[in-house]
Simulated scan of single mutants.
Amino acid sequence: MSEPTVFYPAPLPTVGRIVHYALTEQDVERIRAQRFATAANEVAAGDVFAAVVVRVWALHPAPQCNLQILLDGPDTLWVTSRVHGAEPGTWAWPPRAG
């Protein structure tokens, strides 16, 4: 007889956790503006970067988090009140390696 499938509740975000964040067009414009005279790799809407949860505002019904996005360059981007999801402008848990 096989073992039953066990579903665990989704983990809640907490300060210091690493998540993935997908950039929006507005994020890209902000990054390009702050990089005016800085050499760094190009960004595009939909690009996914690691982000550190710096504040959790609400846990129910959907956790809202402030994040520091770790860009591929000498800079970061601060975004506020972002929720879990799969589209640009949202954060997601990194997939487990296999």
Rank of each mutant, 00 (worst) to 15 (best):
V53N: 02
V52P: 03
V79P: 00
I31K: 07
A51N: 07
P88S: 09
D27H: 09
V43K: 12
W91T: 09
P63E: 00
T90I: 08
P74C: 15
E87Y: 03
G98L: 00
P63W: 00
V19T: 03
W91A: 04
V54H: 11
G85L: 14
G85M: 15
E42Y: 05
Q34L: 12
T5S: 06
F49A: 15
G73W: 10
V53S: 01
A45F: 13
H84R: 15
S81L: 01
R82C: 12
L71Q: 01
T14C: 12
V6F: 11
A50I: 14
R32S: 02
G89Q: 02
A62K: 04
F36P: 01
L23H: 06
N66D: 12
V19A: 05
A50W: 15
W57C: 15
V83Q: 12
G98D: 01
S81M: 02
A37N: 08
V19W: 02
E87S: 05
G73M: 08
D72Y: 05
L70G: 08
A40Q: 10
V83D: 14
P88V: 06
W57H: 13
V19I: 04
A62H: 15
A22G: 13
T90W: 09
R35W: 13
R30Y: 02
C65F: 02
D27I: 01
Y8F: 01
L67N: 13
P9R: 12
V53P: 00
L67H: 13
L23T: 14
H60V: 03
L59G: 02
P4C: 05
A86Q: 13
L23G: 15
A62L: 14
P11E: 00
A50P: 06
R82Q: 14
P61H: 08
M1R: 09
P11N: 00
E42W: 03
R82K: 11
P74A: 08
P94E: 00
P4T: 09
R30L: 01
P13I: 02
A40D: 09
I18D: 13
I31L: 15
A37L: 09
A37T: 06
V6A: 11
R30G: 02
Q68Y: 10
H20T: 06
E42A: 10
P13M: 03
N66T: 11
I18C: 10
M1N: 11
P95H: 02
G89K: 03
A44Y: 08
R82M: 13
R32W: 00
T80R: 04
F49V: 14
L12D: 12
P61F: 09
A51R: 06
A51F: 11
R35H: 12
T80K: 11
D72W: 10
L67A: 07
N66K: 05
T80H: 15
P94M: 00
A45E: 09
Y21R: 02
A58H: 08
T38W: 03
A45L: 14
P95V: 01
W57T: 11
A62R: 09
I18F: 05
G73E: 14
A51P: 10
Y21L: 05
D47C: 15
F49E: 15
L71T: 03
V48C: 10
R17A: 07
H20R: 10
P74F: 07
